[in-house]
């Protein structure tokens, strides 16, 4: 029993990571109807920016806000420069452009920082809380807390600020939003900026656990997709719940289903994506149907 609970705790820990990247995916999807295949790579790039500051001796809690700010501006610039020209183009075109961005960012990080693995310091202390045979690592708690805080901040932004209201208006009816005087283009850029910031948080949390290298987020991305699909592509709450479920499901499947084992765990997100899309395409919390005709 203790072992089972222990596995769930571990699953929640990785689930929180998936949730953070899924949140970033959902933010962009809500505003633009785009699934950003480069989201994981942008997160990885942000982690490298943080690493550069840390490597130069900047304390973590100063490097973090600087990295987040750079990521925010970077995300906005990418929307303005890369995505803007294909706004309103067929889905196929936009997906291909974000795949191009994926390849570019991945290779650019390798070019700038080399493809060698780098050590990334863990902002959370070592050690763990122990209770009844179950131990919960401080870093697991830390990751869960960070995701909780990000979620809370996003809630405050969307529910209690004017810009948040404007962003929701754009997400639900861009044409009408334009008619009440909202600069829709800037809101879309803002959405990308926010997503890049949330993604940066994700990348900085992943880096100490997986080692920092350009392909770091490749594995996480598919779990984040599964989380977002399960929760509903347009639901931030769904992304977090979906992430936690995917994390727990993956860990339990790896631990208790012999056929799967630790090596085939990556089949779990594939199975989740397929089942959700075929049975309940809008996901658990999503409103929009899959096909945006």
């Amino acid at each position: 029993m203790a072992d089972f609970i222990q596995q769930i705790v571990v699953g929640l820990g990785s689930g929180a990571i998936y949730a953070s990247l899924a949140l970033a995916l959902v933010l962009i999807y809500r505003f633009t109807g785009i699934v950003n295949f480069a989201q994981g790579e942008l997160a990885m790039f942000s982690a490298y920016i943080a690493w550069t500051f840390l490597d130069a001796g900047v304390p973590f809690w100063i490097a973090l806000p600087i990295t987040l700010a750079i990521s925010f501006v970077g995300g906005m610039l990418i929307e303005r420069i890369v995505i803007r020209p294909v706004e309103g183009a067929p889905e196929l075109t936009i997906v291909i452009v974000t795949v191009g961005l994926f390849i570019f960012v991945n290779a650019a990080a390798g070019w700038i920082w080399s493809f060698l693995i780098k050590d990334f310091p863990n902002p959370f202390p070592d050690g763990a809380l122990r209770a009844g045979g179950v131990s919960v690592g401080y870093s697991t708690l830390g990751v869960l807390a960070v995701v909780g805080v990000v979620m809370g901040l996003l809630y405050l932004l969307f529910r209690h600020t004017k810009i948040g209201l404007g962003m929701r208006a754009v997400a639900t009816n861009p044409e009408s939003a334009r008619l009440v005087g909202i600069r829709v283009g800037w809101v879309l850029a803002l959405g990308w900026g926010l997503a890049a910031t949330v993604g940066a948080v994700s990348g900085i949390m992943v880096a100490p656990l997986l080692f920092l290298e350009p392909n770091m987020m490749g594995g996480v991305l598919i779990y984040a997709f599964a989380a977002a699909t399960l929760g509903g592509m347009d639901s931030p709450v769904g992304a977090v719940v979906g992430g936690l479920i995917v994390g727990v499901a993956e860990t339990l499947a790896g631990a208790y289903v012999d056929v799967i084992g630790s090596d085939l765990k990556v089949g779990v997100p594939l199975a989740i994506i397929l089942v959700v899309l075929l049975l309940r395409p809008q996901g658990l919390f999503g409103k929009a149907a899959v096909e945006r005709a």
């Binding site: 209201l165 404007g166 929701r168 009816n173 009408s176 409103k287």
Partner: peptide
């Protein structure tokens, strides 16, 4: 606009406040 341009999932109050966005 034609079709009223309602922000469907948003509350009535939010819809009205959006009118004063600028």
């Amino acid at each position: 606009p034609e079709g009223r341009g309602t922000f469907m999932p948003l509350t009535v109050e939010e819809n009205l406040r959006l009118g004063a966005f600028t």
